[in-house]
Design a protein around this nucleic acid. Structure first.
Lengths: 116, 116
DNA sequence: TATGGTACGCACCTGCAGGTAAGTATTGAG
DNA sequence: CTCAATACTTACCTGCAGGTGCGTACCATA
């Protein structure tokens, strides 16, 4: 044996498992820039539903990517920030983001002509 | 104006659009190592259905990530290889793969204890 | 004539990621 | 005593990514 097959022998399995959600990468990116409040994220990403917003934030918190801090104030206040692990992931994501920006036009053009 | 909101202001939009499929990143990785035949990929990734295999390969071809070459031989033969664009994507994916391998244990442990 | 291997194409179906909309607790302002 | 603002919570529903299974065209060999 030893000649087993590779389902995700490249290391992408765990990575995608953790940022696979529709909005997770974007949220990590925003939260990495500076600590963000729940409502702030909601305003910044108006297309995400509140349900998925907390769900993704909670999962990322459980995975150790972000930190959740509650301020016991008059109107409730919660701030999300990136942990070291989250920061390292966001940095590992940067080349991909760079690739995306660089080839965005090319991709879009190809898709347009593919649709005829 | 100018102060528009960011759905994918980080460049990840196009990137995920192109490798978002369940097996695409893995396929790109395999095809980047060396040209692969259809049946070879099928054997290497036994969990993928034939339908998704061609579908993903065709989409990646349309997006210019891989090249498809048909050899008109007795038993039909097709080889898939990575284009320059595909290679650049795979390279941009490498830091993420590295991150995944590095933190695979940590992530898995966290998920185990989260499930109780 | 039949059988087997390759690289597909297609119709049908299911699960679950994600969306929608309503409700909750707290407290200060008016 | 109502209202507004925050940060959730919960039940319900839908779409589509992906899976299953079978059919096809080609030829070589036996």
């Amino acid at each position: 044996m030893g000649k087993k097959i590779q389902p995700d022998s490249c290391g992408l399995g765990p990575a995608f498992q953790v940022i696979g959600g529709k909005w997770k990468a974007l949220l990590l990116w925003l939260v990495h820039q500076e600590p963000r409040r729940f409502g702030e994220l909601k305003r910044l990403v108006p297309d995400v539903s509140e349900k998925m917003l907390i769900q993704h934030l909670r999962e990322m918190e459980a995975d150790g990517l972000i930190h959740r801090e509650v301020f016991h104030e008059v109107p409730p206040r919660v701030e999300y920030s990136a942990t070291e692990l989250g920061i390292s992931l966001d940095e590992a994501l940067e080349p991909l983001a760079h690739w995306g920006k660089k080839h965005a036009e090319e991709i879009a053009a190809r898709r347009r002509e593919a649709a005829e």
